[in-house]
Design a protein around this nucleic acid. Structure first.
Lengths: 193, 193
DNA sequence: CAGGCTATTTATAATGT
DNA sequence: TACATTATAAATAGCCT
């Protein structure tokens, strides 16, 4: 529907991608709205763009903040700050089209359809949660791997200077609870201090 | 996009509505899929059509079954069976487009975007839940109202025949737990038995 | 009713401002 | 960088089978 036909594949150029996202999102929402009115249905559209731009350092802190990482005792991460920079924030949006939900009267609205929607959203939620956990676990593993390598390297260096190796970890589970909002990434870990 | 322009308002004719729902639903899903690929985003579309056809009597029983009604002690309903028939089932559907969620690697997928999506679905859920509760409350109120009228009427009749009025309620909270699946609506209440 | 078929309307890609 | 324009692709309303 434009000057030329476009292939459906990832748009590499970042700004074009952003522009297309805005335009098509608008279209999608409008279509959902129309459908909900025309066919008296309840439609939810949840779109999260995966635009990984403009990193802010304490994003990961917030994530850890909000979600207790149950493998925290395995999280003996080196250079958490660098890792954090790999987590890029995103643009997000939520649109819920619920035209029908407003005009209901007791006898002809199906409570059951709302219950279905609830259940379906629950299903969507569990998919999202499962994927989130999986990705976080992957991150944990890669952190552990890097840590292990660095510890080894460190031990070699330490033996060369005839000193004992200390690994000092601050925070861990509770570290970003207090200073997680708006500040720079705290120095969470010091090696060989 | 058709032979003529259509106004965006409820389609009264049931079968046209159904046809339009199918066609436009398909279009909506396709749009969502394209957007998710083009812009590397995660999109969930949840559509519940509000087609209130083909009533089955124990629908309400199932609802009550699944959801504890905390106002059950107010639920001194008369003729629950009739009420149940006002709850009509529906067609439902769920489509989750998650093309991006599949091809992630640790460093360039935003865990945070998944968390956002989770949070947004939670938001959508609470809207749905709130509406569900509201509708159920409305139903409870109307049941109570009808009950009150009937009790009054009943008392008048009773006094006319010089008898005392008994209101016997069976089940209540737990009533449909055991026999809620596939059976006819149980006689839950007897008046003046 | 489900599945094609076009005449049209609508969405939007590229471009202009 | 964001917003308006417009040529073109895509969606779909009404028909038809």
């Amino acid at each position: 529907m434009g000057r030329r036909k476009v292939e459906i594949k990832r748009i590499e150029n970042k700004s074009s991608r952003q522009v297309t996202f805005s335009k098509r999102r608008k279209g999608l929402i409008e279509k959902a709205r129309q459908l909900s009115i025309l066919c008296e249905s309840s439609i939810a559209v949840v779109a999260v763009s995966g635009l990984y731009d403009s990193a802010s350092g304490d994003n990961m802190s917030k994530i850890i903040d909000r979600y207790e990482i149950h493998h925290a005792d395995e999280l003996k991460a080196l250079d958490l700050a660098e890792k954090i920079r790999n987590y890029l924030p995103h643009k997000e949006l939520l649109e819920i089209v619920q035209s029908k939900l407003e005009e209901s009267n007791v006898d002809n609205v199906s409570v059951d359809s709302l219950i279905s929607m609830e259940e379906q959203l629950e299903t969507a939620l569990s998919v999202i949660r499962a994927k989130k956990t999986e990705l976080m676990m992957e991150d944990m593993k890669s952190l552990q791997k890097r840590e292990k390598l660095l510890i080894e390297e460190n031990q070699i260096l330490a033996s060369q200077v005839g000193k004992k190796t200390f690994l000092v970890i601050e925070g861990d589970r509770g570290m970003s609870r207090e200073n997680g909002s708006g500040n720079k990434v705290p120095e969470t870990l010091s090696l060989l201090k």
